[in-house]
Amino acid sequence: MEQAISDPLIDATGAGRLGGRAIAGKGHAGWTRASHWIVAVSVVTLAFTGFVILMAHPRLYWGAVGNDLTPALIELPISRNYRHGGWVPDPPFSAQAGSPASAIRTYDILNYNGWGRSLHFLAAWFLVVTGAVYLVAGIVTGHFRRHLVPRAGELKPRLIREDLVGHLHLRIQPARGGPPYGLLQKAAYCGVVFVALPMMILTGLAMAPAITAGYPWLASMFGGSQSARTIHFCFFALLVLFIVVHVLMVVLSGFRAQMRAMIFGK
C-alpha cells in the first residue's frame, strides 16, 4: 500500500502530476473529517437497524396503507416473517364480497424493533445534527462550490465517458487524500449529500404519525406513508451500494493513505 504514496505521480507533500497538469492534494479540513466519521458511524448504524426493522415486516407497498391482508409491491425473503402463514379469518365487517376484512395472526413473528427502532432514531439524531452543521459549513466555507459540485467545463460528454471507462477498467487514480475530486467522484458525493441522505430523512419523517399530523404534505408528496417507506428502502439500497463502491475505491487508490488523510488531515 506504500506504493500509493511513493507513486511517481505524487510526491511526498501530496502534490503531483495527473492528467498532464500539476494537482496539489488539499487534504481534508478538520470539520469534514469529523463530520465524515460521525455520519459514517450513523449511516452504518441506521442501515443495520433499518434492516432489523424491515425484517419484522419484510413487505413493501405503494400508497397510504398496506399490510399482510393487502397486496404487496415487493416481498423480501429476509426473515422467517417472509410470507408467513398463521392467519385465522375474523368475522367480516360487511356481508359484501371483496369488502375490507380482518384476520387474527397466530404466527409468532420475529421482532427486534424495541431496541432496533430506538437505536435507529438515536443514530438518526447524530446524522441530522451533523448533517445540518455540515451543510451550513459546506456552503459558508465554499467546500461545496470548490470541491463537490462539478464545474460547467467538466460536464462534457467526452470527459464523462473517459472517467466512466477509466473506472470500469479499474484505472483508479492514486490517493490524493482529499480534493480535488474526479468527475464521477463528485457526482457520487453530490448524490449522497444533496439527494440520498435528505431523501432518507424526508421519507423517514413521512412515516411518523405525529409528524404527518402536523405536516401532512410530508406523506402526500411521496404518495402516502407506505410509499415513503418503499422509497426509504430504495435509497437505503442505493446508499449501501455507494458505501461498497466508496470503500472499494479507497482500497484501490491506497487504503492507508486515504485513511490517514481522513483521520489526520494529510
Binding site: A64, V65, N67, D68, L69, T70, W87, D90, P100, A101, S102, A103, I104, R105, P209, A210, I211, T212, A213, G214, P216, A219
Partner: peptide, 25 residues
C-alpha cells in the same frame, strides 16, 4: 416533538372508501 410540532394538529381523516383490511395482532 413537544417543542417543534404543532400542538393541536389532527391526524388525517380518510373517506369511507379508504377503509382497508386490518390484521388483528
Amino acid at each position: 416533538h413537544r417543542l417543534l410540532l404543532p400542538v393541536h394538529s389532527l391526524a388525517k381523516e380518510y373517506e369511507h372508501g379508504d377503509i382497508s383490511s386490518i390484521p388483528a395482532i
